[in-house]
């Protein structure tokens, strides 16, 4: 597995990074929840922060936002050191940390009003219109007057996203933003993230569900057991794993010989055929060689390994398994 880390770090100075950490570590007692991670999140990226439950994603996010003090290492947001510069930089950062949390007996709108009142950087004169705009953006405007306790989990999640959007942000840190949303809501969040990203906002989104972030991320980082096992652009992370060519045929021995002769690596039998790693050999050449060799090709596919497979190989477990 390639580690694109060095390349990114040398090409981008800290100022161009929305988030940068070095050796960031948090120990709870003897256990290291986060173990020396070096995050590199370029400005303008949509960074998928992946990992099984319990792999240290939320603890990392809490450290990034100054809620938890790191045991070792440093971190910076938008070029400001954390926690020292937190007060200066956090007004430009919207966040959703470990699920929504609001006062149950206040309405959705009253809850947002309270958060806006707490923000010294927020102009009280534009409070009402900013709150309405945020509510509108997440589709809660119609139910904004209801008490929070009457909200469904999906509505609560939307309200939390609205809170992150009360002010124009340069960076959004969204911890499991689609938790509890139905497929429709998940899609809306994906669209929202895409539209924010197209405005130039950097989005750092954590998830234990690969499928929901795979489609929207330009960059990926994968956590496993407190360590960052890989990170880089989605392309780089994917490129780390070689594609596989698979031939379904009734003459597997002949097919295997031809593939080996062509220079494919790791040729082996699979049920109903053979497979190998093309390693630069063009697929059309393989097919031509097979047909020339008199192999009856029933099916021929070249697939990059799915990210799912990749992550299972990186994290050593399924994505819904707690670490």
């Amino acid at each position: 597995m390639t580690q694109p880390l060095e390349r990114v770090q040398t090409s981008a100075s800290e100022r161009d990074l929305a988030i940068a950490t070095r050796g960031l570590t948090k120990r709870f007692g003897a256990r290291a929840a986060v173990d020396g991670i070096d995050l590199v999140v370029p400005r303008g990226s949509v960074y998928g922060f992946l990992g099984p439950n319990g792999s240290g994603k939320t603890t990392t996010i809490r450290m990034l936002l100054g809620l938890v003090r790191p045991s070792a290492g440093t971190s910076s947001l938008l070029g400001q050191p954390i926690p020292k510069g937190a007060q200066a930089v956090l007004p430009r950062v919207g966040s959703l940390v470990e699920g929504p949390a609001f006062h149950p007996y206040l309405s959705g709108r009253a809850n947002l009003r309270r958060l806006d009142a707490a923000d010294l950087a927020a102009d009280p004169r534009t409070s009402r219109q900013r709150i309405d705009a945020a509510l509108d953006r997440v589709g809660l405007l119609a139910t904004a007057g209801k008490r929070y306790r009457a909200y469904s989990l999906g509505m609560r999640q939307r309200l939390a996203i609205a809170a992150a959007l009360l002010m124009p942000r340069e960076l959004l840190v969204l911890d499991e933003p689609t938790n509890g949303l139905d497929p429709q809501g998940t899609r809306e969040v994906r669209h929202l993230v895409a539209s924010l990203a197209s405005d130039g906002t950097t989005v750092f989104v954590s998830s234990h569900l690969l499928s929901e972030v795979e489609q929207m991320c330009t960059h990926l980082g994968v956590m496993s057991d407190g360590r960052l096992v890989t990170q880089g652009s989605t392309f780089e992370v994917r490129g780390g794993a070689a594609p596989t060519a698979r031939v379904l045929t009734d003459q597997p021995t002949v097919a295997a010989r031809i593939l080996s002769e062509l220079g494919l690596n790791g040729v082996e039998a699979v049920p109903g055929g053979v497979r190998g790693t093309p390693d630069g050999v063009a697929p059309e050449k393989i097919v031509a060689a097979l047909v020339e060799g008199g192999v009856g090709v029933k099916e021929f596919t070249v697939t990059s390994p799915s990210l799912e497979d990749l992550f299972v190989s990186l994290t050593g477990e399924g994505f819904d398994v707690s670490g």
């Binding site: 936002l65 956090l90 007004p91 966040s95 609001f102 006062h103 958060l115 707490a118 923000d119 809170a163």
Partner: peptide
């Protein structure tokens, strides 16, 4: 709500 107040900040 404490964590959201502190991250407002």
């Amino acid at each position: 709500t404490l964590r959201y107040l502190l991250t407002v900040p």
